[in-house]
Design a protein around this nucleic acid. Sequence first.
DNA 1: GTGAAAGCGCTAACAT
DNA 2: ATGTTAGCGCTTTCAC
Lengths: 328, 328
Amino acid sequence: MARGFVTAEEVAKKAGVSRSAVSRTFTPGGSVSKAVRRKVLKAAQELGYRVNRLAQGLNNDRSNLIGVVGANLSSPFISKQLDLLSIGLLRRGLQCLLLNAADARKDIAPLIELLFEFRAQAIVVLSGEPPASIVDECIANGVRLILINQRLDRTDTNMVLSDDSHGADLAAMRLVAAKCRKVAVVSSGSQTPAQLRRAGAFTQRMTVEGIEVVPWSGGPTSYDSGYQAGRELLADKSIDGAFCVTDLLALGFMDAARLEMGRRVPEDISIVGFDDIPQAGWKSYQLTTVAQSFDALTEKVLTALDSDEPETRLQVVPVSMVERITAR
Amino acid sequence: MARGFVTAEEVAKKAGVSRSAVSRTFTPGGSVSKAVRRKVLKAAQELGYRVNRLAQGLNNDRSNLIGVVGANLSSPFISKQLDLLSIGLLRRGLQCLLLNAADARKDIAPLIELLFEFRAQAIVVLSGEPPASIVDECIANGVRLILINQRLDRTDTNMVLSDDSHGADLAAMRLVAAKCRKVAVVSSGSQTPAQLRRAGAFTQRMTVEGIEVVPWSGGPTSYDSGYQAGRELLADKSIDGAFCVTDLLALGFMDAARLEMGRRVPEDISIVGFDDIPQAGWKSYQLTTVAQSFDALTEKVLTALDSDEPETRLQVVPVSMVERITAR
DNA sequence: GTGAAAGCGCTAACAT
DNA sequence: ATGTTAGCGCTTTCAC
């Protein structure tokens, strides 16, 4: 109790009107006469009144809060996503309640539980896979759930994801075009569904093409893991191509290749990444990579927020090859 | 109205107890008998009840919401900060209401206004300078305001910042030790207070040392701006040192120097950055830089959240030189 | 157009 | 330890 904020009651008193007149003044469709509105606005101004959204939400069951849960918020990919998303939400008059899962492997159920308590209108999951029970609860409670780059085997929730398998295919074909004979496919140890899809589709395609694939995975999704992969894999002199399922891995791999393992890129080895994070375009790297469209992804999430068309439940966003200089 | 969520009333009915018994069961210090508690918990479980934090907050004036406003959420520095902060808040049982200012130059007043409406308990500003009127309002309304890397000329609000001038000094001394004769100091066009302090302190020190300083500033705080700076400045063959007030700028500058302007680093030119973002440690760069302690910064912010010691209002966090290979 | 009154879901002071 | 009662600040019928 006893806080500094001014209430509508006080404003009403000062303006000499009823408490509901004040409410109406601040409600978009409220019917108030010019005269009253002016008086109210004046009093509110002088008192420094601002509506209490908590009370407002309690009343009409619209908290205006959108829960966002994600891990590794400082990774280039996630942070870019969060950046765009938070801008888009704000633009739509929605607030972003951010919950950091800290670690993608962690169970995000308790976080979503927390979002329920805040009566979030919708929940956007940037990373981590919610258990089926939580998905059910979302539906039961009328909370829209939107999963990014996550493909659950159900049709009753919103999923927005990049076309991983097609992307992996593009990467495969690019390495085929580079005339690679033996390629590495590197992913992190935290086998996220997206990474698994990419590695799987790539391997499958390469097998069809009759090209030998050497899989590697380990560590978190980071530059260091990629570097480590490079050190270990490139002891094998015959590897002349690599698909890293994430740009961060690719950048680390590339540095290991050039700086420690004495390979020239792309002369000795062709490298293709996935994501197209800003760093992939830096002059020291100029990584050839499969680009996810951050804008399109965000756009789809935003529209999924209000539209309830069942047919737009699963949105696959196209990817594209960004040709730079790391593949022959 | 008409939402799926279960209320305490329904739980009470099902458990055959009063509505307050339910409330007490879910309140840490509530005095309830084992028996009642069990009944309540059981009913709550079956019904899928969860407290409504909005209502809870409305009651005891503790929204549990901490407003966080920042711009350029995808930049390495800010995103790292946000990552740590959001983890810390969650750990303390606080929720993070994120507002993206999109652009550091934008006025953040309306965003803070919005946070008032949500009755945020405290507001953390990662970037952007709040106008004095807003600061006053925070104080008037009992909302703690914490500014990061922002030094306002007042003693009634919390500021947590890295020791920019000492850091700039370290950078200067490092370039002196590298025997530079003519050094560039590059900052972005969005002259943030922190950047101004760094550039200012650096220039001052160099002037004392009798070393010529060539200032450059332009563009946003980005890799590209740094690159641009490199291209323009290094037409001057006599520049043999550079202090970039931000790592992102330094990385771009370095690439321009090596890859386009034919300079060897550090043989021909010594480069020192500021921040110590993850990319500064990447093998292709290995930037010598002044490190801000993200952990210490976050730690101070977190403690500033609850402690109200006036003497801890201005917290200056020490910085340190990270010696890598870009300075002779 | 405006005010009175009820109610959103919860907590806390007051009895018992 | 438990139930009753009175709010928290707001929106929304419902009369007028």
